[in-house]
Design a protein around this nucleic acid. Structure first.
Lengths: 349, 349
DNA sequence: AACGCCGTTCGAAACGTTTCGCACAGAACG
DNA sequence: CGTTCTGTGCGAAACGTTTCGAACGGCGTT
C-alpha cells in the first residue's frame, strides 16, 4: 500500500507538504503542488482512513442502527437504510449497518466507544426510547428517523401524520363517506410506544372529528385473521361505516376477505385505504388498493443529511422535518352506496 | 476517551502488558491480569479500532456492495443485507453498507484502498461481472451472494435453481398438469447477464423436459400489462398450458387479471406459482399464491460467514453453497380441468 | 559457584496520518 | 542597512494500538 511517504519521496518534498498540498489545508506553491499531485496519481495513492481518523478524530463513518427483522421490517424500513447510505455516500460519508442486539444501549456504548463511528442514525424510534437517552447523555451526535414523544432539540425526520391523516380523510369525505374506521396495528405485535401507530391513530381520529365524520377508532389488527374478525365486529357495532383505513397490509387481506364473504364488494360496499404501504404492495391487491405511501427514501435521505449537518456545523439549530405520505389513488376507494343497499348486485363499475 | 495508557497507569504496569493481558496474546500472571482487567472495567476502557487497525491491518470491517435500488431491489435483497450484517455482528465484524456508484470498480478501488475494509460481500452478481475481475486481480478477499457464470474458487452462496425448479415442476406434475409455461423477467428490465433469470429459465426448461411435460419458455414479463398480454399470447399459441410459474410479482398481477377477463379462475382454469417472492407477498394476492420463497436471510448469513472464514483461514478450500427456494403452497395451484371445460362455472372449491 | 532457562514484564519502534512551531528566503519598509 | 513581514517548506510530535527484542529475577542443573 502506498503511503504519504512514498509520494513525498517521489515528489522530493516533505511528508507534511504532501499532506498540505493534497488536503489544501495550507498554501503550497502551484508548481510544487502539481508535482505532488502527479506523484500521487502515478503511485495511485489513497489516504489511509484509519491513520487519518486516529489523529483527526474524523472518520466520516456513521452507524445506522436497525432493529431485528421481523418486527415489522418491510420495504419502507429498508428504504430508510438504502437512501440514508446513498445520501451519506454522496456527502463523502460511510454507513455502518449495525443490527440491534438484545441490549441496544450496550451496543451503542460499544459502537461509539470504539472511535470508529462519528454519529448515529436511529430508526424505529419509540415514544420513549432508552437509546436516545443514552446518546443525549453521552454527547454522541445523532439523528432520528421517527421521533420520541418529545424530540426536543434532536434532529429528526418523520412522517407528517397530521397531514397524511387529513389528506386521507379529505379523500374519503370528498367521495361522500360520512363514517369511517381506522384499523391500527395491534398492541401485541407492536409496542404501545410505537410512534407511527400512536400518532396515526390520534391524527386519524382528529382529522375525522374536524371533518365532521363518524369515526370508529380502536380497531386493531395485524394479521388476515384479525382483520377479518375485526371487520365483522366493526360492522356489527358500526354498520354506518363505509370506509376504512388500514395500517397493516396483512390485516387488509383479512378485511377484503370478510367483505367478500358477505357478498359485498370493494369499493362498492366498502372503500379501503391502505395506510403506510408502498404502491408496489398496494397494486398487488385486487382491486388495486388506494394507499398512503410512506416517504421512506426521503426520510432516509433527510436523516442522513441532518446527521451530517450536525457533525459539520454543530452549532446549527436542530432540524425537524415532517413529510406526509403520498396518497396514491387505486380502485379501492369510491363513493359509498347507501348502507341500506349494501350487498346488492353491483352496478356498472 | 480512556486509552490503554490510562489503564496501564491505574494498574501500575506497562502499556504493552495491558495489551497482552486484554488480548491474551502473551502469558500474563493471573494476579496482574486481574488487576488490569479491573482497572479496565473501572475506567470503562474500549479499545480504539482505528489504532488497532492501523498496526494490525485487521479492522473487522466488511463492505456490502448493494446495487442502486429500483433495479429489482426488493425484500429478498434487503434480507441479504440484514442477515449478513447480523451474521457478521455475531462473529465480531461490522458491515459497511456501500451503495454502488456509476463506476463500481472505482468504488471498490476506493473502498479497499482506504485500509478500512478487509473484505467485500458482493450481491446481484452478474454472469460476467467486472467487479469480481477487479477483486480477484487486486487480491481483496470477497464472497458473493449469487455467482458468475464460472465462479471458480470464489466463495459464494446462491439459490439452488436446479432443485427449486424441479420441486416446483414436481408439484405441478403431481397435481396432474401436462404442460406448463415459465414467465421470466423481461430482458429490458433485467440484464441478460442477470444470473437468477438465466438460471431459473434454464432449469425450469430442463425440469419440465425431465418430467416429460410440455413447456413454453421464452415468455417474458415484468409489469402487470406485460403479464396480461403475455398470457393472452401464450393461450393463443399454447392452449394446452394449464399451469404457469411467474418470476415477477407484478407480472403475476397481470396474469391474474387476464385470467379473470376471460371469465376463468385460479386455480380452476390455471394454476399459478410465483417464483422468487416471499410468502408475505404471496399471501397478499387473492387467491393466496403458491410461491417459491427465496432463502434471502440464509444466503445473507452464509455469504457473511464465508467471507469471514476466508479472512480467518485464508487457506481453506472455497465454499460453494446452493440453497433451494422453499415451496409454500397457497391456493393458486390445483389439479387442472380438461382444457376443453375451461371457463365453465366453478365446481365446489 | 557459574550457567542457562523460564516466566514475567518492560520499553521502544512502528503503523500512516495531521498539526504546528520553526526556519529560511526574498520583499517591503523605515 | 537592519528590521519586519510573507510565502513556502521542513521536521517532530502526537493519535492509540500491536509487536518484539531485551531485561530481570528465581530456579534447577552441572
Amino acid at each position: 500500500m502506498t503511503s504519504l511517504r512514498d509520494v513525498a519521496e517521489r515528489a522530493q518534498v516533505a511528508v507534511s507538504t504532501v499532506s498540505a498540498a493534497l488536503n489544501g489545508t495550507r498554501p503550497v506553491k502551484a508548481e510544487t503542488k502539481r508535482r505532488i499531485e502527479q506523484a500521487a496519481a502515478e503511485l495511485g495513492y489513497r489516504p489511509n482512513l484509519l491513520a487519518r481518523g486516529l489523529v483527526s478524530k474524523r472518520t466520516r463513518i456513521l452507524a445506522l442502527l436497525f432493529p431485528p427483522p421481523g418486527s415489522g421490517f418491510g420495504l419502507t424500513e429498508m428504504q430508510f437504510a438504502t437512501a440514508a447510505a446513498e445520501a451519506a455516500a454522496e456527502l463523502g460519508y460511510h454507513m455502518l449497518l449495525s443490527p440491534e442486539s438484545a441490549d441496544p444501549v450496550e451496543e451503542l456504548r460499544y459502537l461509539t466507544g470504539m472511535g470508529l463511528v462519528e454519529g448515529v442514525l436511529l430508526m424505529e424510534v419509540r415514544l420513549t426510547d432508552e437509546r436516545t437517552d443514552f446518546l443525549l447523555e453521552s454527547g454522541v451526535p445523532f439523528a432520528m428517523i421517527g421521533r420520541t414523544r418529545d424530540p426536543g432539540a434532536v434532529d429528526h425526520a418523520d412522517i407528517d401524520f397530521a397531514r397524511t391523516a387529513r389528506e386521507a380523510v379529505a379523500h374519503l369525505a370528498g367521495l361522500g363517506h360520512r363514517a369511517i374506521a381506522f384499523f391500527n396495528h395491534s398492541t401485541s405485535a407492536y409496542s404501545p410506544e410505537y410512534g407511527p401507530s400512536v400518532r396515526a391513530g390520534a391524527e386519524f381520529a382528529a382529522a375525522a372529528r374536524e371533518a365532521g365524520l363518524g369515526y370508529a377508532g380502536d380497531v386493531r389488527a395485524d394479521t388476515a385473521d384479525e382483520g377479518r374478525r375485526a371487520f365483522d365486529r366493526l360492522m356489527a357495532e358500526h354498520p354506518e361505516v363505509t370506509a376504512v383505513a388500514v395500517m397493516s397490509d396483512r390485516a387488509a387481506v383479512g378485511v377484503l376477505q370478510a367483505v367478500e364473504e358477505r357478498g359485498w364488494s370493494v369499493p362498492g360496499d366498502l372503500s379501503l385505504v391502505l395506510a403506510s404501504a408502498s404502491a408496489r404492495v398496494a397494486e398487488m391487491f385486487r382491486p388495486r388498493l388506494t394507499t398512503l405511501e410512506p416517504p421512506g427514501a426521503e426520510l432516509g435521505r433527510l436523516g442522513a443529511r441532518m446527521l451530517i449537518d450536525r457533525l459539520e456545523s454543530p452549532g446549527s439549530p436542530p432540524a425537524h422535518r415532517l413529510v406526509p405520505c403520498r396518497l396514491v389513488i387505486g380502485d379501492s376507494s369510491a363513493p359509498p352506496r347507501t348502507t341500506a343497499s349494501r350487498g346488492a348486485p353491483q352496478t356498472e363499475a
